[in-house]
Amino acid sequence: MTTLYLFGSAAPPVSDAARVVGDAQARGWEVCLGLTSTAARWLEPQLQELEALTGHPVRSEYKLPGEPDVWPTADAILVAPATFNTVNHWALGLTSSFIVGVVAEAIGKHVPTVTMPCVNAAYVQHPQFKQSVKTLRSAGVTVLYGPGGFEPNQPGERRLESFPWDMALDSVGSIVSPAS
């Protein structure tokens, strides 16, 4: 089976993790779920259910040196929702969090990676965000942002139901077929 690492940051669409895991599995992916520490705290009541659903531990922290990896190797990675913080840390190579460390290394390992930011219109005015999107794209990451991708919402506007999860899963599937 082809393995997808699904990584989520602490933005409202992360609350759809169980549904998205199920959708990815229905498409033929074996899914390993990783979360930022804040997203893991948000989903704490669901973590056991998510582990049962994926058949793997939900990870939000680095393993200790010498410990075996509990996940199979990724064939593809989807980082969604990716917050302002996650996108900027990743582009700058600041790997203090587990998921940012994995995706930063994935660039060098040439693991096909897709990200869909979930940021509001105020955050995207910061000049670093546009530079970070440009940096990730130039490194080979498919960034689903702007026309044809995620369109920023207004601060405080929660558009959970309109986060384009299908677009994100379709994009990963167009790069790496789960049946391959």
Rank of each mutant, 00 (worst) to 15 (best):
T3L: 00
L4A: 12
L4T: 07
G8M: 12
S9I: 06
A10L: 06
A11D: 00
P12Q: 02
P12F: 01
P13K: 02
V14D: 04
S15I: 15
A18N: 03
R19N: 11
V20D: 08
D23N: 14
R27V: 02
W29N: 08
L33Q: 04
T38H: 07
A39M: 09
A40D: 10
W42Y: 07
P45D: 09
P45Q: 06
L47S: 02
L50D: 14
E51M: 12
G55V: 09
H56N: 08
R59F: 06
R59A: 15
S60P: 01
E61L: 12
K63P: 04
G66M: 03
D69A: 13
D69V: 11
W71R: 11
P72I: 01
A74W: 01
D75C: 08
A76L: 09
I77N: 01
P81N: 08
T83S: 05
N85I: 09
N85K: 10
N88W: 12
T95M: 10
S97K: 05
V102N: 04
V102Q: 13
E105F: 06
A106Q: 07
A106P: 06
I107G: 03
K109D: 12
H110R: 15
T113L: 08
T115D: 00
V119N: 15
V119W: 13
V119Y: 15
N120T: 00
N120F: 00
V124W: 14
F129D: 01
S132L: 15
S132A: 15
V133A: 11
K134H: 05
L136N: 04
L136G: 01
L136M: 00
V143E: 09
V143G: 04
L144W: 01
Y145V: 00
G149D: 03
E151N: 05
P152I: 02
N153I: 03
G156V: 05
R158G: 00
E161G: 13
E161F: 05
W165I: 04
D166P: 08
M167Q: 14
A168P: 00
L169W: 03
L169H: 05
L169E: 01
D170L: 06
D170N: 09
S174W: 02
I175G: 05
P178I: 11
P178A: 09
S180W: 14
